[in-house]
Design a protein around this nucleic acid. Structure first.
Length: 579
RNA sequence: GUCCCGGUAACUCAGCUGGAUAGAGUGUCUCCCUCCUAAGGAGAAAGCCGCAGGUUCGAAUCCUGCUCGGGACGCCA
């Protein structure tokens, strides 16, 4: 049930009945800022009054008379300059909560299915995944999950960096290692180290650089030996990534990989195509597109290079090929690409070129979901003490270890194995939540203490809120599966919780439309605090609580637990029964 | 130089298409353990929303200028 939409639709139907109001007049509805203003407020009376040259409060009165919310609202009050405050009916809320409880999707309405391509993670296979890949991976995963949950067909595309000149030196180095009878997996057990070694040889060893460059050419020419080496290399590197995905609890499979190399065969065609259309021209030996749309004040257009003067292709060419493949071959209605904010200009250009050159269908939307950097406590890019990049695996392992220590400080009746499992879920969840709960577009400051805290807006708090409800059920002896209660909402906190529960749909929708998981995070946090307040005010298992009241409240608690679990699940954060 | 993103409480951050007294969390202070695991709850103090103009019934939100920080801007991705 999308309450917001329902109420808005009712208001929309009402205002068009007023003389002089157009069919598509805006119907500005908002969630109320304060409880005394009800749950929703309609703010359209002021604008309409102005348009109709009338008195806002008079228009508001007219709207209240016209709007049909009898089944949903218990009162509609006009306040201030002409706000219409909507107070929802407890009986109606009860019905909706009950319906959500029996609904597979917890009351979230499916949308008309579209095909959505989500480009996420996309690590460079020459090196190991580092903290810079965290955001693309988990934000992309969360958004993909949410869109999928709404009933769309999501195609994940892991645009891995498996191509480029650096692979020349890497496979040359690998060849020597293998000849020294090393096995690929051991030689490549530490990719960072391997890369460093290869780079040193490239810079210092006589003849190695030439050999590396030769290998690049051979590789591009399809030389079988080089290709075998290259495949070996990326295979091991992909395995590294898969370990990270596994640890991260991210839904990415081998079949989601569509690396840069996969687009190689399409690149000449893309350029030739654009050239034929006269979009691409030669300039300083390179094949470029001039974009007048992005010209500066002196009229100098922006330049987008699709082929180097030497004749090689670039990431810009690959991105165009990917765009075409996704729009035409994968039939995407929507393409969302999660990369860091520095590439915003590049994708803006890419879209312009693609649209001009017909590399994307008009009806396919092309969205770049930029995100900021992870910063250290000092506000500078997050690095090791010595200034090196932090491996993602190390970061995750450290988090689990820290979580384990914090958990060990508390009393627990869990076994050692269970505790370890909890530590894993808490540690990983904390890192993910700390990231996902922040606005995607800005940089954020990484802090172990605040993200692993069991207090405040953190994953551990949400996970704990979930286990609390599970614990209540264990204590109650009521079986959640067979719970069939008559819902009755009486207390203010009960009503607030019910409303919050029904707003799950709104939160999910916002995440889907704007690709902003933090909206779901704050929703879940608000839901948890709503539940805590409800729990304080509305006893269930206390002596003297009537059976029907107890069951009704347990039912609301059950939906809370289910919603929390589902929400966290969509964010890629695991829950547990006890902690 | 041009363009993009940001500047909100001591700290970390929300604030959706302009709406009522700008909200959370942390930290500080006060109170509450005979329903779950106090890993909790209730409350208080805390803000020239970077600055200055403008638009209007109404601006943190829109427009302009400035300022500070980050980033991008032809053969890296």
């Amino acid at each position: 049930m999308n309450v917001f939409q329902l109420v808005q639709d009712r208001f929309r139907q009402a205002i068009v009945k007023i003389d002089g109001v157009e069919q598509n007049a805006p119907a500005p509805l908002a969630r109320s800022s304060r409880p005394e203003f009800g749950e929703y407020q309609f703010n359209g009376a002021m604008a309409l009054a102005k348009m109709l040259k009338s008195n806002p409060r008079q228009i508001a009165t007219q709207i209240v008379e016209l709007v049909n919310l009898d089944d949903v609202a218990e009162s509609l009050d006009i306040a201030g300059p002409g706000f219409i405050n909507v107070k929802l009916k407890p009986e109606w809320l009860s019905e909706q909560v009950a319906a959500s409880l029996t609904s597979e999707s917890l009351g979230v309405e499916k949308e008309q299915a579209k095909t959505v391509v989500v480009d996420l993670s996309s690590p460079n296979l020459a090196k190991e995944m580092h903290v810079g890949h965290l955001r693309s991976t988990i934000i992309g995963d969360a958004v993909a999950n949410v869109i999928e949950f709404l009933g769309h067909k999501v195609i994940r595309q892991n645009h891995m960096g498996d191509w480029g000149t650096q692979f020349g030196m890497l496979i040359a180095h690998l060849q020597d290692k293998l000849q020294a009878s090393e096995v690929a997996t051991t030689a490549l057990s530490d990719l960072e180290d391997f890369y460093r070694q290869a780079k040193i040889r490239f810079d210092e060893e006589e003849g190695f650089a030439d050999r590396a460059r030769q290998y690049v050419v051979k590789l591009q020419g399809g030389d079988p030996e080089c290709e075998t080496l290259w495949k070996k290399f990326i295979d091991v590197s992909i395995q590294h990534s898969e370990e990270v995905y596994e640890k991260l609890n991210v839904n990415l499979k081998r079949s989601d990989i569509m690396g840069e190399s996969a687009y190689n065969p399409m690149l000449p065609g893309v350029v030739a195509d654009l050239k034929e259309q006269g979009i691409v021209v030669e300039d300083q030996g390179a094949q470029v597109v001039f974009l007048e749309e992005l010209a500066n004040k002196d009229g100098e257009p922006a330049v987008y290079i699709v082929e180097k003067s030497g004749g090689g292709y670039l990431y810009s060419t690959t991105d165009l090929a990917a765009m075409k493949y996704r729009s035409f071959d994968l039939n995407a209605d929507r393409i969302i690409i999660f990369t860091d904010a520095r590439q915003a200009f590049h994708f803006k250009q890419a879209e312009l070129v693609g649209r001009k050159g017909g590399l994307i269908k008009d009806e396919t939307s092309y969205e770049h979901g930029p995100f900021g950097m992870m910063l250290g406590q000092d506000g500078k890019p997050f690095k090791t003490r010595t200034g090196g990049t932090i491996k993602l695996v190390d970061l995750l392992d450290e988090s689990v270890e820290r979580a384990g220590k914090l958990l060990a400080e508390r009393d627990s009746d869990l076994s050692a194995e269970e505790q370890q499992e909890v530590a894993r879920k808490v540690g990983i969840g904390a890192i993910k939540y700390a990231d996902l709960s922040k606005n995607r577009t800005t940089d954020y400051i990484f802090n172990w203490d605040t993200m692993l805290s069991f207090e405040g807006d953190t994953a551990p708090y949400l996970q704990y809120a979930y286990t609390r409800i599970k614990s209540i059920f264990r204590k109650s002896g009521v079986d959640a599966e067979s719970l069939n209660a008559d819902l009755k909402i009486t207390e203010a906190q009960e009503k607030a919780l019910a409303v919050k529960l029904l707003q799950f749909n709104e939160a999910i929708l916002t995440v889907s439309v704007n690709s902003t998981p933090h909206v779901l995070c704050s929703y879940l946090y608000e839901l948890s605090s709503s539940f805590m307040s409800f729990y304080e005010a509305c006893p269930m298992l206390k002596e003297g609580v009537a059976e029907d009241v107890k069951l009704s409240r347990l039912a609301i608690s059950l939906l809370t637990a289910k919603t929390l679990k589902k929400g966290l699940d969509l964010l890629g954060i695991e829950t547990m029964e006890r902690m």
